[in-house]
Amino acid sequence: MAHGAGGKASRTLIQAVFVDAFANPALQRLDDGATLDLGTGRLVFTTDAYVVSPLFFPGGDIGDLAVNGTVNDLAVCGARPMYLSAGFVLEEGFPVADLRRITASMAAAAERAGVRVVTGDTKVVQRGKADGCYVTTSGIGALERPVTLGESQVRPGDAVIVSGPVGEHGVTVMIARGELDIEADLTSDTAPVHEAVAALLDAVPVRMMRDATRGGVATILNEIAVGAGLAVTADERAIPVRPVVSGACELLGLDPLYVACEGRFVAVVDGDHAAAAVRALRRHPVSEGAAVVGTVEAGPPGMVLLKTASGGTRIVDLLVGDPLPRIC
């Protein structure tokens, strides 16, 4: 299971199995999507499989998750999301009403994101061979801006921005499983971020973007630091976390920095334009909570350092799998 948690184990699995098997330059970059040059123009192509339990949760369901997730992967690659495919793996006996609900929210999400679901496939497997319903979406987006994004563009002095309060999706889903008897005013943050991304790209020089899904913001910051061979220094107090989320995380023993989001992204921008970047983002509802959380520094290379509220400097490491306490 740790291999899906978005941390070091996922990365190792991806490197060892997939990159190896499908070796090509577009894949090797391990971005959220692949940028392809067709001669007539550049496009971005991405795919994602969605599994979530429960399938329906406050603020969303697996359907809009599957649309928004792929839309966001296209968006943070700098593309305008255009077309999606959708694949379903259904467990025998899965209620048709539930499937209708899921497809309806997919349609609504597609409408909201301005994309069309143009092809798809459905398979049914025996009872017990799947957990209700799995969804896979692939997406194509047009790369219309002449920008180059990626870790290689990042340099010391750049500002690191988070587009909104973190951790809402992961905590919402955990509580929605209903095992814990928690009443909390929480909804998933699932949302398309392509408009906010476009506004940001129009406003300031952007180095790179990532959507902070599995593994949370901490994992993205590590990807930035490792990929760029630079350090990311973040300020714990600057990272936006809603009190209800930090309260729930405290209770559940989770670190919000590692909790999944579905409508948040991390952007690295030219440090001189940090304030303008935040202003541009805050004009969009989906990123009205945007904040500068840290800066890129020359060293120590590959490390994410968090200035804690108590004045120390905590190393924010890439989790290997599910978090296990390190305290003796």
Partner: peptide
Amino acid sequence: QWPVIVAMARAGTNAPPTSSAG
């Protein structure tokens, strides 16, 4: 918080088992 903590323990939600003496 007590009922939530007990529920976490029972459901195994972020509640890794330990044989720790400490």
